[in-house]
Amino acid sequence: MIDVEKEAARIAEQGESAPRLARDPVNLPMINNWLEAIGDQHPGYTEVAPPAMVQVWTMAGLHGQRTLDDPLGAMMKILDEAGFTSVVATNSDQTYHRYLKVGEHVSVTTSLEDVTGPKKTALGEGWFVTTRSTWYVGDEPVAEMRFRVLKFRPAEKPAPRPEVPKAQAIRPAINRDTEYFWEGCRNEELRIQRCGGCGLLRHPPGPMCPECGATKPKYLVSDGRGVVYSYVVHHHPQVPGKQTPFVIALVELDEGVRMLGELEGEPSIGLPVEVVFTKVDEELTMPSWRPRADR
């Protein structure tokens, strides 16, 4: 395991990094760009730079790399290895000793001031790393900055919806009159009882046709498409195996029978839906509804 505090002490002991010279001297084109970007219309920056620009002069550029003795870079690497892989800046306090004049060439040094942690934060557990940078013109300090970042281990993302224990779900009673339906669901077929005598379609099913009296029920496999005939949005009380609120829709299938099922999505009467099958376990697969993509 990486001893963060020991590593921090080692880096802090190295003191200031070697002075790193700015890419360009303080210059008017960059001042004007900065003023424009910030929206500062003060007319006085013709011979001196805005003090808050100090960091700009020593920025490494688009493809810049940290110097080997840069303490912040070294500390970040150690914390990355320790698993604190994310970073967010938390504080930046700057002190300006004087204006920088156009043509002056600044350099910067940085030292590691403090590393504290691990702290529990809303973002996750992490370390606060504070560095101190000093800008010089020659040997003269012209500005300083205390800069603090939180280097953290991202908190586990909450599960979108905790899985409802399947054991809690209410299971259907099944008998010889209804087994064909549940067998169909296991095979991802939505079956509708069809009388073997007169062809009457019927749901819920039963052993004797109320139309012709035949007792030889068969079934057809529905296209599983229909429209919402009515629905409820259930809030209270809790229903075993469900997360409230949830929608239960009474769907009129294209074949003409109605069937209840849970509906994913925003309900409305007339909404075109199609069947979805959700496997609960080896024995039970439940049909439910979702809005049709082609509606």
Partner: peptide, 24 residues
């Protein structure tokens, strides 16, 4: 058995059962 077409789908209280009629 009659309830096997409603309870497992989450429609398991008298209020919810009446609500289905009421919506229509």
């Amino acid at each position: 058995i009659d309830n096997s077409w409603s309870y497992p789908m989450g429609l398991g209280t008298p209020a919810a059962m009446v609500a289905m009629f009421a919506r229509r």
